[in-house]
């Protein structure tokens, strides 16, 4: 016990380091809201005064609303499709002995690692060879591929955390596979599904590279922002837009992670047991 506490005693320098780390992690992003309320089109110190005009101006801009709606449509569709497939994939990966599972899972998780630009151009080449015109649909296809690994990774701890004998009991009591899924499996993994919907929606909503290569004439919100970045006088309104998007993203992701926290905690605890 004494050596235990020796190892576990607080480490002052490390605590300071952790605090600095978190500050550095968040501070660059916090400058966006700070300057979005600044009464100047120049993004620099000293601050000149408080204003909400950039937000008001944003509110009256037609293309912003159009781009926002595009992003929401793509995001909702993507999150539903990715999560739908993700549930079954995560269940298959955790529950069944599948031959060649390692390589298969590795293949599915590729979009997490391979540079987005490669996927973007590869899909662009495929679609153009098939003669498919670029549109929000093609962006959605790209986003589903990007989001599927996230959905599966979010759902895997859920399936790991629940006892398969509950499903067996349901089957033994005469439920068929379909009703077992709806009445036993689904309620148990539901927090995971909700978390996955929220997280994949955010990933899709914020995704830029796939949208860059695969969108047609309708821009998503990140594409619209990208277009505005060329004009220095648009900087303040981009700051306002970025602040709103980041705030909403942070909240949505936090809720998503929070809903799923006990599953993740179980996984971490399992790791500790091993």
């Amino acid at each position: 016990m004494s050596s235990q506490s020796y190892i576990r005693r607080p480490n002052r320098p490390l605590q300071v380091y952790a605090a600095i780390f978190l500050i550095v992690l968040y501070v660059p992003v916090l400058f966006l809201p700070l300057f979005s309320f600044n009464d100047s089109i120049y993004v620099k110190f000293p601050l000149t005064g408080f204003t909400t005009q950039w937000y008001v101006e944003l509110f009256h801009r037609e293309p912003v609303w159009a781009a926002l709606m595009n992003s929401v449509r793509v995001g909702v569709t993507t999150s539903i499709i990715a999560t739908g497939f993700g549930v079954f994939a995560a269940k298959a990966i955790i529950r069944y002995r599948i031959p060649g599972r390692g390589p298969l899972v590795g293949f599915i998780m590729l979009p997490l690692v391979v540079p987005g630009i490669i996927f973007g151009v590869a899909l662009l080449v495929l679609l153009s060879q098939l003669g498919v015109p670029l549109s929000l649909y093609t962006v959605t296809i790209g986003h589903v591929i990007v989001c599927l690994p996230f959905a599966i990774a979010t759902m895997i701890p859920r399936f790991e955390g629940f006892d398969p004998s509950v499903e067996e009991a349901s089957a033994d009591l005469g439920e068929n596979a379909w009703w077992t899924f709806w009445r036993v499996t689904f309620p148990i993994v539901f927090p995971g599904i909700l978390a996955s919907l929220l997280l994949t929606f955010t990933v899709s909503f914020d995704e830029f590279i796939m949208a860059f290569f695969l969108s047609g004439s309708d821009p998503t919100l990140p594409m619209y922002i990208w277009g505005q970045l060329r004009f220095p006088k648009e900087f303040p309104s981009i700051l306002a837009m970025a602040s709103i998007i980041l705030l909403v993203s942070f909240i949505v992701v936090f809720i998503g992670q929070w809903i799923n926290r006990d599953a993740q905690a179980t996984t971490l605890a399992n790791e500790e047991d091993k």
């Binding site: 968040y26 909503f205 914020d206 970025a242 998007i245 980041l246």
Partner: peptide
Amino acid sequence: LPFWTSYLLRVFA
């Protein structure tokens, strides 16, 4: 948390 939010906007920051 920051990792999940817009890469474009973090670079812009």
